[in-house]
Structures are given as C-alpha cells and as structure tokens.
Design a protein around this nucleic acid. Structure first.
Lengths: 255, 255
DNA sequence: ACCTCTGAAGTTATCAGATATGTTTGGAGT
DNA sequence: ACTCCAAACATATCTGATAACTTCAGAGGT
C-alpha cells in the first residue's frame, strides 16, 4: 500500500482521523461532486466514517479552509465554485515580508497579463470588450475628482484600474488566467498604491495612466494580438519604474 | 464600521466565532509571525478569545486548510512556510471537469515558463544551473530503459522532466514563479502523461524530448535570455501539439 | 563528564452529551 | 392558491472527560 502525503502533513491512513476524513471527502468532492452540491449532514457523515461528529466538523473546517466547501449555519456544507482565493494568503505572506517580492509579482504580472492581453485580442467577444470599456470609462469618470484630491474618487479610480486588468484577464477566455489574476488582485491593489507615488514623482498624471489603458483597449478591440501584448508590456514596465522610483524615494526620506 | 467578507463567506464580527477567530489569527500570522513560529496552546487561545477550546480547534483547522499552519499531535500549531499547495486543489477541480482546461494550463505554462527560462538565463547561479543539469542527466540515464518498456524508468524519466522545469522556475530567482510552478506540477504530470501518447504518435521519441531540454539548458548556461525563452516556447508549443494529437486520437478511438 | 532511559507535565485528538440558534418544509388556516 | 407558523432538521458552541503523543528535565548507569 502506497502512502501519500496529505495536506495536513500526515500520512493518509496513519494521520489524524479528521485529516483522513478530509482527504477522503476532498477526493470525492474533486472527482464526483459539482459546485453547488450539498454534502450529507454531519451526523450522517459521522456514522458513515464511524467517528464522532466533532471529527467530521473539523474535517469540514479543513476543507472549507482549502476553499472546497462553503459553510453556513443551519445548512449542509456546499461544494464551492473554485476561485483564486486559495492563492491569496500565500501571496500576502510573501509580499508582507520583503519588497523584492513586489518586483517578483510585477514580473509574474508581466508574464501573465501580456499573455492575457494577447489572447484577449484574439478571442474577446462583445461582452468581454464591453467590460473592459466599462472599467476604462470608470477611470475616466473619476480622474478629475481624484486629481483634485477627492479620496473616494481616488479609490474608485484605482478600483476601476484593477477592474480593467481583471476584465482583460477574463476576456482572454482562459479561466486559469482569470483565477490567477483574481488571486493576485488584492496584492495588486497594494502595488498600485505604491506605484502611484512614483508616478507623480516622475511627473505623470492619471491621464497618462488612462492613456496606457486606452492603448491596450484599442489593440484588443482591433484584434491586434501583438500590439495588445506589447501595450500591456510597456504599461507594466512603466508601472515597474514607478514602483522603483517610489521605493528609492522612501529609502531617501524614511518619514 | 466596515464589514469585510471572510474566507468562510461570513461577515467579520457577525460570522461564526470560529471564523472570526480564524480571521484574527490569520491576520496575526500574516503580519507578525514568521514561518516556524508556534502559536499559543489551544487552552491559552481559548482564554484569550473567551471561547471554548473546541472553537479554537476549528479555527486552527480552517487555517491549516488555508495552508497557514501545520498541525501535529502533541505539538503546538506551527506557522507554515508558504508554498504552492494552496493553489493545487483549485487546479485539480478545474482540470478534472473539462479538457479545455488542459489547454488553458498549457497557455499559462507557456507564459510563466518562458518568463522563467528568460529570467534564469539572466540570473541563474552555479547551483541553479547544476540543478537543471542534474535533472537533464536523470532524463538521459532513464531514457533507454524507458523506451524499452521499463515502467519504473519511464516514471523516473517523467519525474526528471517535471524536475527540469521546476529547476528552471527556481533558477529564475523569482519565488512566486517557483511557487506557481509547484502548484501546477501535479497537474503538469497529468498533462505530460497525455502528451506522451501524442508524442509517439507523431513519430517522436524520448530522445527528441531530451533534445528540447538540452536546447533550453544550453541557452540558459550561455546566458542568452532570448534564446532560452524561445527554446522554452517551442518546447511547450510542441507539447501542446502532442496533447492535441493525443486527444483527437482518443476521440477517434474511444477504447 | 557523558549518555540513556524514564516519567511527569504539557499538548493535541477524540469522544459523549447537551443546549442554542439558524434553515427548511409541510400543513393548517385563510 | 396563498400566507404563515411550528416542527423537523442542521449547524454552532459549550462542558467535561479520556487517550495518545511530544518534550524535557532529572535519575541512573557507564
């Protein structure tokens, strides 16, 4: 019999009862159940696996943490639609510790988002393009107020900025790209916050930011895959320079 | 007071006690604790949060599922080194359902691995290159036996194949790329299994596979970033063709 | 002085039983 | 056919207790 390392670091069959049940249920969920389906009740699972109800509860909590289940009081556990949240904690822990990870993330974004833009130019349908346009309009509508110092408008501007990139990722038609982007979006917001300072330091305004995005959208709309990828690449390279500028200024003036 | 959606789908402060504790602990782990550090004992946490010890246990299980903690009997929970495992379930659930995701994954790999190879050519140190060479030698050592039908050698060959790509990702010096690759590696193994059939259908042997990898290694060793990226791109494009061939044959002969 | 073994203390794992609180559902009443 | 409500069901949490594992200091032997 082959021993397999489980997510809890224990060996299947020799680990804790809760971990064993969790692994077994995970297998069933991933292979036999579809999102939206309900698990049996805790009591029924307890009798099926011949363990205490508490053990079942802990197994379900493990799976909920893994993002496989949704739990709500009074209802049975429901198989969850997969999303990028599972990857988010991990990025958070990385980015919090060192600023090098900020550049690591930019490199990964560069890779994934150039690909997204390229594919979006090839495949985006009307709805996908409309979503990108909508995000761009949101940026345009809030730029003036944001520049004048309205913090709410500023936040909306950045939300639409993130939304633009997410819309491009979704328009790529590649679900994994979409999920990966979703996983990174929280950290991305943080990166944008930092890059913003360098952006103004370098004499740029939000209108320059909008111009970058317009260039990307135009290429996608025209179905020009190479131009879309290149526009995205240049935009992210520019953002990288903003971050580099902001970080070096923070080092000079550690206020 | 702003309400925030927690990982369990509940609202912080209004969700279950276990989910609230989990969110609070997650915040502490991500901001204040380093991998390897121990959490207080369950009893102490129970008194700190003024809840039952069982509630603490369930919160810890949630965090363990999220990949933030390692649990072992008799020991306090330990903050875990972040890794790509958190993303793995999600890919599993995607790939199990439809074959389109197989191509989605190839596209993502294309993007990430070309970037990895490019960066590895720029940055790889002696140890990084040695790891890539070691994987390649492993492939070479097992090729003959694998071709003759030795299943163990065949498996080792593929393990070294995956190991080659992982070594390139690590040699990129970008930790996020390394972790992303780790997250994909289980699914990648599955993809390689399928591509293998198409590989032989198209008249190729494992020596051709080795040749692709040699080309990538040579470019990295020479510090030629463009050539390394291009070699990786061509290798993955070829793999994509293998998979396409294998899947269409499976459709013709659904034995 | 060093090593090994042992046992107590600390900690997690699991069980049993009970109460509180939410959700669902079927039937009474209109 | 519709509304409303209570019973059944399900999860959330607590209390108390026992088993099993880890660690570490100290006894004892070399």
């Amino acid at each position: 019999m082959e021993l397999r390392i489980s997510r809890t670091g224990s060996l299947s069959g020799g680990g804790s009862a809760a971990a064993d049940v969790a692994d077994d249920l995970a297998n069933e969920i991933l292979t036999a159940l579809t999102p939206g389906a309900s698990l049996p009740s805790e009591a029924e699972l307890a009798s099926r696996y011949a363990v205490n109800r508490l053990t079942i509860r802990e197994a379900i909590k493990l799976l909920a943490g893994r993002g496989l289940l949704d739990i709500a009081r009074g209802r049975k556990a429901v198989v969850r639609e997969p999303d990028g949240a599972a990857f988010s904690d991990f990025l958070t822990s990385l980015l919090h510790n060192d600023s090098k990870s900020l550049f690591d993330l930019i490199e990964v974004r560069l890779s994934l988002e150039v690909q997204s833009a390229t594919l979006a130019a090839k495949r985006a349908n009307r709805a996908g393009i409309a979503a990108i346009e909508s995000a761009l309009h949101g940026m345009q509508d809030n730029a003036d107020a944001a520049i004048k110092g309205d913090p709410a408008a500023d936040r909306r501007f950045h939300d639409f900025d993130v939304g633009f990139h997410e819309a491009v990722a979704l328009a790529s038609g590649n679900r994994i790209l979409g999920y990966l982007f979703e996983a990174m979006s929280a950290q991305l917001r943080y990166g944008i916050q930092i890059s913003r300072r360098g952006h103004t330091n370098r004499g740029h305004t939000l209108y320059d930011t909008i111009a970058w995005h317009e260039r990307i959208l135009d290429a996608i709309r025209a179905g020009n895959a190479r131009a879309a990828g290149e526009a995205m690449r240049q935009h992210l390279k520019d953002t990288e320079n903003d971050i580099r500028n902001a970080l070096s200024n923070m080092a000079d003036q550690p206020a």
